[in-house]
Design a protein around this nucleic acid. Structure first.
Lengths: 212, 212
DNA sequence: GTCTCCATTGTCCCACGGGACAATAGGAAA
DNA sequence: TTTCCTATTGTCCCGTGGGACAATGGAGAC
């Protein structure tokens, strides 16, 4: 799998060595002498890749960078690679979502295996997210009124019930509902509900029963 | 949070010491000198609890027990507690789903904090699972034919379409559909689809469009 | 001041979902 | 053998969803 590997390490000779090994394996590589350099240069974020991160680096530490990236919504998987490893640090890193935690010196087998797994994870997460984004974008095109109708319809309300709740005529709801189906490109109520369920709308339904 | 803590350690004096500390904190405790003893005695599995597990123990090792438990579908969270800790082992354990990885000697604060978190996780997972189980059980009461109808209906097929696919009259499908709604205790198609989506049915829909 | 978008409502008509009431037939269990 | 469950199909009728065709009024954009 091709991909851009971001290497963060303060040891210039180590960076060069790792870069050489990765490039030899067919990866693109970007190196950074500190966490701040990566934060400053971090380009797209949407491109397939992963971060190879040392723990002890001047300025922001590895785990601190991990937290920062998580805050700003980065989805680049992180593989720690450090010589100063202790159990609590590694456990915290993994629990915080790091993809792997390797120790120097690292065999090429270990390194490339971890990178490959991280890229695979990133790939899977990206495709998952892009599907969601498409749906969310469509939902975002709904007008406020349409969105209200949408919310009630996917909970099993009939046009009549929606009309009562929103204080409008059944005919009006029918019109909104029609536009909703159109904008979200679905042909049936079942599809509409599926879509809503997958987009994370419809978190919890308790009293959905219709009082027919 | 109350709960039953399963302590697995080959060191009898350590077991007793941990047991005392846990009981003092209000937990029920069961101790086992080996992984096999826990596997033999493991009672319900549905009761709220967690496992405190040493890594190096005679017979099955801690990680091996973790794998075994995972295979047999145990959902008890595992907190490792060991004196012989190394980074790779701890990383593997956490990635394999362990809740935490502590090192001896352990402070009461660390120990109780980890146990409490593990119990909270177990609690959350249990309630999540029990909801799913209810739904799955209901779906399991469907007859094969009803299940076929169910599968098609939640994908947005009309009675007519279902009838064509299954080679039956529209009226027949209507009857099956009625019983499906009855058995799954839903009043609307929307609820039926929601239920299916949450039960993990409806994994992937590609061509759901109706060819009306 | 038009133009566009949003919200609103109407009528006519048809297809689809669903309840009521009823019945036949085969297979499995008691 | 009798009984229960499952699968099957029918008719009648109504409520609801949805397409076609049409129109009004307000708000913000150009």
């Amino acid at each position: 799998m091709r991909g851009l590997i971001h290497v963060v390490d303060d040891d210039a000779s180590f960076r060069t060595a790792i870069e050489r090994r990765l490039k030899k394996a067919g990866y693109e590589v970007a190196t950074y002498p500190s966490a701040q350099h990566l934060l400053d240069c971090l380009p797209s974020g949407s491109e397939l890749g992963c971060i190879l991160l040392d723990v002890r680096i001047p300025g922001l530490s590895g785990p601190e960078l991990q937290g920062r990236l998580s805050e700003i919504g980065s989805t680049l998987p992180i593989v720690f690679l450090t010589g100063y490893a202790d159990v609590p640090t590694s456990v915290r890193a993994i629990k915080a979502g790091a993809d792997d935690f390797l120790t120097k010196p690292v065999s090429s087998e270990e390194l490339l295996g971890a990178v490959e797994r991280a890229l695979a994870h990133h790939q899977a997460a990206r495709s998952q997210r892009s599907k969601l984004d498409v749906v969310r974008a469509q939902v975002a095109t709904l007008t406020p009124r349409e969105r209200q109708v949408f919310d009630l319809v996917i909970r099993g309300k009939t046009n009549k019930q929606v009309a009562n709740v929103l204080g409008a005529t059944e005919r009006t709801i029918k019109a909104h509902r029609h536009r909703v189906m159109e904008k979200l490109q679905v042909q049936s109520l079942a599809e509409l509900v599926s879509l809503a369920e997958r987009a994370g709308i419809l978190k919890d339904l308790s009293g959905t029963g219709q009082t027919t």
